[in-house]
Design a protein around this nucleic acid. Structure first.
Lengths: 198, 198
DNA sequence: AACAATACAGACCGGTCGGTATGTTTGAGA
DNA sequence: TCTCAAACATACCGACCGGTCTGTATTGTT
């Protein structure tokens, strides 16, 4: 058996991400994570000090990378900011719509479950939400300067509201197990976003 | 020791609600619930068949009553629907703002945690969300007929979006542990709601 | 080749979990 | 007053939890 510590670590992170996404952090058992990763307990405790530290690493590494791929990258694929924003919504809908309606947003799931329970999770998730929000607000500010977006709006407030609405749509759709509800909710959000154009 | 089965049951429901609100259903231990309720395990298993059934009863009874008190009642305290809606937001903000920014919305917490894990919870929570959404949509339809709200909107879609945004605001504020963020997010939502006026 | 240090493997541990079995007390109806 | 079901109380159970411990195999270093 050839060894590959980096791959072992990556497999643990991937398996932990999926188990946590499905069962929540508290509901995810170490045994389940290890089985999915096909890694033994000894290996896992060699790479991570505890289940908690493994969870933290999932936020810092896996969730961060996913957020970048799902938001920042597609956003930059359009010249116009509003077009870019609508593009991120459409793309995530077609690429991960079923998954989102089924299991919800991994980041927000963790936020809702862990923020009252574990400060370490709360801070880490808050960092990612802050990054996301700042990206939105900054984009809005630039778009206002470029005359793409109305100048009478508060960029920070709208960024916050957009994020809230987006996560809310995913959350409701997840509870209803309905991609159709997800699409419908995003449709109204898209109207709101279009209403921001100058 | 005088006996009072109804009160015992009510105490169990109340304690379960609070423990679940703080730790989530999976994270809430029976022991903790029993300690808070000052009720023994025997008494609890006399009134409820399992922890799951206790949780179901919390949704069907406690959460339902709270939703009625927090939404349907204040909504009907204003003639104009938009005024009523803003009134529910203001009232819940001032009466439960700290609690919401701390622990979030009990109904949505349960939705996010349990819907992928337990179909019984999912269905029950979905029932309450449906009730809420229908109340909003029906109110919007009547308000349109009364000329209070623009006629070019889709009542069901807006109702869904409003609910999503509201829950999203609470969720983000909870993760940030910030009543100020909660207020700010609700402020933008209030602008949106005001924009619905005819 | 010798030696560490790293990377695992897996048995084992104490504790807590939800749940049960059995016994006792209480109070309403006959 | 007697009876019996309802309303509790408590000791206990097996399962599973996260975590540890000891041992072993692999790999880079000298």
């Amino acid at each position: 058996m050839t060894r590959n510590p980096d791959e072992t670590r990556a497999r643990l992170l991937g398996a932990a991400f999926e188990e946590i996404h499905r069962h929540g952090f508290q509901g995810a058992s170490l045994t389940g994570i290890l089985a999915r990763a096909e890694v033994t307990k000894g290996a896992m405790y060699h790479h991570f000090a505890s289940k908690q530290e493994l969870g933290y690493a999932v936020v810092d590494e896996v969730l961060k990378a996913r957020l970048e791929a799902a938001f920042f990258v597609p956003l930059s694929e359009r010249e116009n900011f509003i077009d870019g924003l609508l593009h991120t919504m459409a793309k995530s809908m077609e690429e991960r719509g079923a998954m989102l309606a089924d299991l919800g947003c991994p980041l927000n799931n963790l936020a809702q479950e862990m923020s009252p329970v574990d400060e370490g999770f709360r801070v880490r998730v808050d960092r990612l939400f802050g990054w996301w929000r700042d990206g939105l607000a900054e984009g809005l500010r630039r778009a206002i300067a470029l005359g793409q977006v109305r100048g009478d709006i508060d960029p920070e407030g709208v960024a916050l509201f957009y994020l809230a609405a987006l996560e809310g749509c995913i959350g409701l759709a997840k509870n209803a197990r309905s991609v159709e509800m997800h699409a419908r909710c995003l449709g109204v959000l898209a109207e709101y976003v279009n209403g921001l154009r100058a």
